[in-house]
Nucleic acid binder design. Structure first.
Lengths: 127, 127
DNA sequence: CCTTGACTTGAACCGCGCTTCAAGTCGCAG
DNA sequence: CTGCGACTTGAAGCGCGGTTCAAGTCAAGG
């Protein structure tokens, strides 16, 4: 039971052009063809979920492709995951501090906001 | 006491080309010129700190320019800050979930990792 | 005066992640 | 057989955030 590109597009929320683009980048492969038309395995959908998730996480498509190509027992893969985990952690901390600055900014009374000492300090912390 | 572009570049960590680029985008303005050379107020440095911080936070340069142009008592500004705060919060949550997935991935024993049920589930949660 | 070297400009180029377009090829309905 | 419409391709284009380049200008020092 293979899916055509329109169906994969609809279910994954990715444009057909994006799917072809991902194929060029080595992220996905159609299982076969009906004439010229790509036919995808259902499994491709979960692969795409993984891809969009990783992409949203700030992985580049090239990084994701490398992950997906990585063989089993790949210690390099694990190491890269761990490295990315550290990166993401740092980003979370940074964004959390920034969120706090914004939260304060939205309610503070200083006028120009840029002069608010709390805001200024928050910005410095958020760096 | 005005600073020239090399000094601002060095202290801000931004390339001169980036400073000129920001000028074209309306983010900064030199206070004057020495001949052709830009002369910046010291204040520009804190403005740049604010800019890089906001940029790191995921604001586009266009958004930042709009913020900086916003007048005092600007309720629109506050509203945009609040909106961005919500955006950033969401992103923090999402990245936090992702970080947890990666954290697990780095230590889990499944081989291909993609088959790990915990990982799969974490991905679904992270969406 | 002439060189040196840091600046100036506008325009071109880059990588990323796609989208859009023109031109061509299918399968199916009538 | 003849459309029609949904797919195919490669190439070009786009928005973002810059960098790089060639050509020009200027101030200071020898």
């Amino acid at each position: 039971m293979l899916l055509d590109i329109a169906e994969v597009s609809q279910r994954s929320g990715l444009a057909p052009s994006a799917l072809r683009f991902y194929e060029r980048k080595g992220l996905i492969t159609p299982d076969g063809r009906n004439g010229l038309r790509r036919a995808y395995q259902a499994e491709t959908l979960s692969r795409l979920t993984l891809i969009t998730c990783a992409r949203d996480a700030g992985f580049t498509l090239a990084e994701i492709a490398a992950f997906l190509r990585a063989g089993p027992s790949d210690t390099v893969l694990r190491e890269r995951m761990a490295a990315k985990e550290r990166e993401v952690s740092e980003r979370v901390d940074q964004l959390t501090r920034l969120r706090d600055s914004l939260r304060h900014a939205a309610v503070c009374e200083h006028d120009p906001l840029v002069e608010c000492p709390e805001f200024k300090q928050a910005i410095r912390r958020a760096r």
